[in-house]
Structure formats: structure tokens, C-alpha cells
């Protein structure tokens, strides 16, 4: 079982967390183009390799976290509070959803 190093609680079993989807999705409620909105709803990058994603520490601090994980190995290289700028300094525009 993978360990997730919660920035608030420390390393915890992944069963304490809920995966909350890929991070950095653009949400535009003003759009008139269903295709744009539905890309936001349904489209996932689903990369083989590193992905930026959100986790929710359900059975812990109840905080949303942002992380970078390798989908091939499940290795985490970065975990931070939701909305944090990435390890490379790049921000998610706060829309960590």
C-alpha cells in the first residue's frame, strides 16, 4: 500500500485518502460551447507517467492536497496543499480541480 506524505499529517496509508481527480482542469461556467464544458467534465489526460492530481485526506485532516505521482510506479515526488504552485513553481491558477 502506498504511503502519501500529507503536508499536514505526515506519511499515511493511501486508504486514508480519496483520489480526487486530475488537477489543473479549466472550469468555465460562462462557456456557450457544450464541447468545452464536457471536456472539463469528462476528459482526463490519463498519462502513462507523471500526473498532477488531487487527493482528499478523508480519514485525516480533511484537506485537499495536490500531488505529482507516477502512474506507472505509483511513486510520489511532490505533495502539497491544494492549489500550491507546483514543484517547478508553475501555478495551477488556483483551480486545483
Amino acid at each position: 500500500m502506498i504511503l502519501i506524505d500529507c503536508p499536514y499529517c505526515g506519511p499515511r496509508n493511501s486508504t486514508e485518502f480519496r483520489h480526487a481527480g486530475e488537477a489543473g482542469k479549466k472550469r468555465d461556467v460562462t462557456t456557450n460551447d457544450p464541447a468545452v464544458w464536457r471536456r472539463y467534465l469528462y476528459q482526463q489526460d490519463n498519462p502513462l507517467g507523471w500526473v498532477r492530481e488531487n487527493w482528499f485526506h478523508t480519514a485525516g485532516c480533511r484537506q485537499f492536497l495536490c500531488a505529482e505521482r507516477n502512474t506507472q510506479t505509483n511513486e510520489f515526488r511532490w505533495v502539497a496543499p491544494a492549489g500550491s504552485p507546483g514543484p517547478d513553481g508553475a501555478s495551477d491558477n488556483g483551480s486545483a480541480r
Binding site: 480519496r18 480526487a20 472550469r27 488531487n54 482528499f56 478523508t58 480533511r62 484537506q63 485537499f64 491544494a82 492549489g83 488556483g94 483551480s95 486545483a96 480541480r97
Partner: peptide, 13 residues
């Protein structure tokens, strides 16, 4: 409960 937290923490901190 989680949805409320989600909006507050990820979109409107």
C-alpha cells in the same frame, strides 16, 4: 460534506 470542502479548499480558499 466533502463537496463543500472541495469548493472551499480548491476553488475559493
Amino acid at each position: 460534506w466533502e463537496t463543500l470542502e472541495m469548493w472551499l479548499q480548491t476553488s475559493h480558499p
